[in-house]
Amino acid sequence: MLRVDVAKQLGEFSIEASFTSEGRVTGLFGASGAGKTSLINMIAGLLRPDRGVITLDGETLDNTATGAHVPPHRRRIGYVFQDARLFPHLDVRQNLDYGRRMNRLADDPAQRSRVIDLLDIGGLLDRRPGQLSGGERQRVALGRALLSKPRLLLMDEPLGSLDEGRKVEILPYLMRLRDEGIPMVYVSHDAAELRQLATQIVMLRNGRVTALGGVKVLTGAAPV
C-alpha cells in the first residue's frame, strides 16, 4: 500500500496532494503541467517534498517531520521514464542486467528469460540503444525496471513519446505487466489508456487531487 501526503513548491507552481493507493494499478491522471511527474519523482525519491509523508507497505520513505528520507537507490522502486533513458554506452543485455548488478541480486536466468519473452526483446539483446526504435527502447526500459525486482513500478507516460501505431504495439505488453502483480503507479493524460490499464484513479489538476476512485471517475473527464 502506497500512502502519499506531500506539499512541494516549485517556483510559481505548488503541489499539495494526498492519496492512498491499494489498487494494483493506480492511474495518475491529469493534463500536462498538473504536477504528475513531480509527484512520482517524489515517490521515487528524486525530488524531496517540502512537507509531508510518503510510505510504502508500512515503510516510511519520506517524513519531513522527522527528517527521514530514503535515497532513491534504497527504495526498490522501479521507474519507467517517458524517454526510456537507456544507458547509451551499454548494449540491451547490459541495460537489462544493470539493476540486478547494482542491487547485488543473485542471477535469475528464469526470471530474465520470462521478462525477455514477455516483452519480446530477445532479438535485441546485442544492440545498442541508438539502434532501437522508440517502441523497442520503451520495451527494454520496461524490462530493465522489472528485472531490478522493484516493490513498486512507476511509469511516467511510457507511451507518451510514441505515435498511435506504436502505442497499440506496447499496450498489450503493459497489460501483461499489470497481470504480473507488481503494484504500479501509471501516469497519463490519456483517459482511454487508463481505462484499459488502471484499477484505481487519482485525478490531478494544478497540483491538487480533484477526484479519487475507480476508473468510473474518468467518465466525463475533460478531454486533454
Binding site: A44, G45, L46, P71, P72, H73, R74, R75, R76, I77, G78, Y79, F81, D83, R85, F87, P88, Y98, G99, M102, N103, R144, A145, S148
Partner: peptide, 17 residues
Amino acid sequence: DRRLEQASSTLGAAPWQ
C-alpha cells in the same frame, strides 16, 4: 544527461556506483 544518472539511481545504484 543527468537524467541517465537519475535512472541509474532508481535501479539501485548508490552515488559512487
